[in-house]
């Protein structure tokens, strides 16, 4: 299954689920990465990590590893 870590520049996707097993999952939900929400990959830092997503009208940077727990529809 594709996750937010696999997204390309400028790609828009809808979140289907956030993997509860990941230790950062609660914070990721709290900051607004909720199922049904659309996200867009805006930037990748050097070494492609962290990734910056456009979410609910703001930019949020999260690590690639953390983006991996955001499953896409």
């Amino acid at each position: 299954m594709r996750t937010a870590a696999d997204m390309e520049y400028g790609e828009r996707c809808i979140i289907s689920e956030v993997d509860s097993a990941h230790p950062s999952s609660r914070r990721i939900l709290e900051i607004g990465f909720t199922p049904g929400q659309e996200i867009e990959l805006i930037n990748k830092s050097i070494f492609n990590d962290p990734l910056a997503f456009s979410l609910r009208g703001t930019l949020i940077a999260i690590r690639r590893n953390e983006a991996g727990c955001i499953k896409l529809a």
Binding site: P23, S24, I28, I31, P50, T58, I60, I62, R63, E66
Partner: peptide, 11 residues
Amino acid sequence: DNSSFILELPS
């Protein structure tokens, strides 16, 4: 601890 980096980038 779990290492994490989640940060809002303000306009």
